[in-house]
């Protein structure tokens, strides 16, 4: 992986990094990806254990979209954590 690719990924992840950091990350990623690549062979070799179904414990748990809490009781507590607010709004820069 080269540093240009790292910079592109950092952009996708919305993180500003320096050119020096991208360069050193590219070498670290090469080492890490080389290490983790061994799983590719494991996953493609046929294994009877993989054919077994054991779904219990891995099901989506859903609940009714009902019984909301009383409107507004948490508003102030949550807004207090916003870095910038304007009354009951969280303030952001204009988008368009």
């Amino acid at each position: 992986m080269d540093s240009a690719e790292v910079l592109k990924l950092a952009k996708l992840a919305r993180i500003e990094i320096s050119a020096e950091e991208a360069e050193s990350l590219s070498h670290e990623f090469d080492a890490i990806l080389n290490y983790v690549s061994e799983v590719k062979a494991v996953a493609t070799s046929p294994n009877p254990l993989l054919a077994k179904e054991r779904a219990k414990g891995e099901v989506n748990i859903m609940r009714e979209d009902a019984n909301p809490h009383e409107s507004g009781i948490y508003t102030e507590r949550l807004l207090n954590q916003a870095p910038q607010r304007d009354g009951s709004y969280i303030k952001v820069k204009k988008i368009l």
């Binding site: 992986m1 990924l9 992840a13 993180i15 500003e16 990094i17 990806l33």
Partner: peptide, 23 residues
């Protein structure tokens, strides 16, 4: 704002893992 907040607020190991995960 996102780029600067996340670039400044996250430390090096966290940046490394987020970017690796993105890959």
């Amino acid at each position: 704002d996102y780029f600067k907040t996340r670039g400044t607020g996250f430390g090096r190991e966290v940046r490394r893992r987020i970017i690796l995960g993105t890959y």
